[in-house]
Design a protein around this nucleic acid. Structure first.
Lengths: 122, 122
DNA sequence: TGCATCCATCGACCACCTTCGATCAAAGGG
DNA sequence: CCCTTTGATCGAAGGTGGTCGATGGATGCA
């Protein structure tokens, strides 16, 4: 699968564009599961820190060896968390030479943020 | 405690306002933990659906008996999830008469969304 | 060719989380 | 005053998730 895609706007008939993605008449269970899968990826301190480290790193990318020491976790653990972030569609992985470079997916955080914002307008 | 508060902007010297909360030079571990705690609360399909149901309900509030059937879970399970959302600062609980009314905390989702948006500006 | 480095995978361990039935306290109606 | 309703809590069962050491594949350097 290609990491959810967060399709919350597709609704057949009913109302059109009202207020927000989350604030509808109940959100379809499948869409809720997709959303929850993304949030779960961000539901660990180490992963939030890793995401921040990658984004703030020079060139907006970082390899595992750059991240292991700042988060204070063993290398296998860091690799594990990075894989989860990649599977969630928040990071990309590119292998160059001996290193694996991780970078933040351009619009990922913005799209997720947009799903939460503009939720409480009358 | 009063549910984190998500104070990510407080930094002593260094740079001032640059691009975004998440995208800094590394986010302090404590702040990462706070953020992760909130995301973890949203990391379950049932809770995302419950949040949506409450927000979309008439009057922007709902009692447990309104939510049990739509999510297809037992009443103790729904109460459990609602408690987690309240502890995360996303819902409020007010007991009126025999019922407990849950409502979305006004700016909660917007504040969380703002932390994710505006993250990838050069 | 031999060796060091980087990193993903594996296996195991422990903790936590989700879910439910049973139970109990509080409130209201007859 | 008893009985029903609402919902929180408890305890148990099963599943999931985080962490690490050990291992192995791939790459580059000497």
């Amino acid at each position: 699968m290609s990491t959810a895609e967060l399709t919350l706007t597709e609704r057949p008939g009913k109302d059109a564009a009202c207020c927000a993605p989350l604030v509808r008449e109940g959100i379809r269970p499948a869409a809720a599961a997709d959303l929850a899968r993304t949030f779960k990826a961000l539901g660990d301190p180490a992963r939030v820190q890793l995401l921040s480290l990658v984004a703030a790193h020079e060139g907006a990318e970082a390899c595992v060896c750059d991240l292991t020491e700042p988060v204070g976790l063993a290398q296998p653990t860091v690799s594990h968390h990075l894989k989860i972030l990649v599977d969630a569609g928040l990071l990309t992985r590119e292998k160059r030479g001996r290193w694996a470079y991780y970078a933040v997916v351009p619009g990922a955080l913005d799209r997720l943020g947009a799903l939460l914002t503009e939720s409480t307008v009358p």
